[in-house]
Nucleic acid binder design. Structure first.
Lengths: 149, 149
DNA sequence: TCCATGTAGTCAACTTGGTTGTCTAACCTT
DNA sequence: AAGGTTAGACAACCAAGTTGACTACATGGA
C-alpha cells in the first residue's frame, strides 16, 4: 500500500479535479483552491492579509496578491482596522458569501458521493482521524494549508 | 468540520513538513516530493519520461526536467528502450534505491507516530478508505499525483 | 516621553516549476 | 509507401511563489 501522503495527495487531486469540472459545467467562475480557502477562513473570523497568509502557509506578499484579485473581482473588500491604522480587515462581500455557499453545496455533493462509494462510517472515521492527527501535530495553532510539491 | 479536501491538504502538508525536517536533520539531500514519487514509481515498473509525467500529473516536458535533475545527481540513469528507438527507460541507480529505502523507513516512522496518535485501526481505515475512493473514481488508471493549488 | 524594536502592507526584482508550441526521428497502421 | 501518432528535446513564455527593502504605524520598556 502506498504511503499515506501519496494517498492524501491523490485523493486531494481527484476531488479537486471533480470540483473544478463541475464548477465549469455550471458556468461559475472557477477560482483556484486558494481563493476558496480564503472565503472559508473569512467566514469564521475577521482577518488581515497577514492572517490569511499564515493560514494558507504562504508569505504575506503572496497573500496580498490573492486578496487583491478577490478585491478586484468583487468577492471581498478591505475596511480599516478599528485600532491599528496600518492594518485592514478583509471581509466577504455578498458575492463572496454567495460563492462560498455554492461551493459548500458542491462539496457536500462530492462528499455524499464519496460516502456512497466507501461508506458513511469510513468517511467519518477519515475526517475525525485526520482532524485528530492535525490536532496532535499542531495543537491549536493553524496548520499551513498549501501543499508543498 | 472542514470539508475533506482541506483536511487532506493540511495533513499532507503537515506530514510533508515533518518528513522534510527529519531529512534535513539527518543531513540527507532533501529532494522535493516529486522526486521521491518518481523513485517509488520506478521501483514498481520500468517507465519512460512520458509515463512518469502521466503518473505525476504534469506534462512530459516538466517530467523531463525532473528526470534530468535526478540523472545529474546520480539517482537514475537512462537506458535505451529495447524495441523503441525513440524512447528511453529511466531506471534507478543504487544511490536512488538507497535513498528510497531510507525515505521509506522515515515514512514508516512517521506513520507509526500517526498510528500512535490516532489509533492503528483508524489509520488503517483511512488508508483503505482513501484507496477505495481512488479506485472508485479512477478505476485502474493512474490518478494524477500533483496537488493543484 | 522618548526610543528601540517590531509589525502591516506595498513595491520591485527575482526564482521556480510549470505551461504551450514546435520540431525531428521513430513508430504503427492500413 | 503514406498518413497519422508518439517520445523526446528545445524554446518562449507564464503564474505563483520567494526574498529584500522601505514606509508608516504600534508597542513596550528605560
Amino acid at each position: 500500500m502506498e504511503p499515506v501522503p501519496m494517498l492524501l495527495a491523490m485523493t486531494y487531486r481527484a476531488m479537486g479535479d471533480q470540483f473544478h469540472d463541475r464548477l465549469r459545467q455550471i458556468g461559475l467562475e472557477p477560482l483556484r483552491p486558494a481563493h476558496g480557502y480564503v472565503f472559508r477562513f473569512l467566514k469564521e473570523k475577521r482577518a488581515t492579509t497577514v492572517d490569511i497568509g499564515q493560514h494558507l502557509g504562504v508569505t504575506k506578499q503572496a497573500a496580498a496578491k490573492i486578496v487583491n484579485e478577490l478585491d478586484e473581482w468583487g468577492y471581498v473588500l478591505k475596511e480599516p482596522h478599528p485600532t491599528d491604522k496600518r492594518a485592514q480587515y478583509v471581509t466577504l462581500t455578498t458575492k463572496g458569501r454567495d460563492y462560498l455557499k455554492f461551493a459548500d453545496n458542491l462539496w457536500s455533493d462530492l462528499e455524499a458521493e464519496m460516502a456512497e462509494a466507501i461508506g458513511r462510517n469510513t468517511l467519518d472515521t477519515i475526517k475525525t482521524g485526520l482532524a485528530a492527527y492535525l490536532q496532535h501535530v499542531h495543537g491549536d495553532d493553524q496548520p499551513g494549508l498549501r501543499p508543498v510539491w
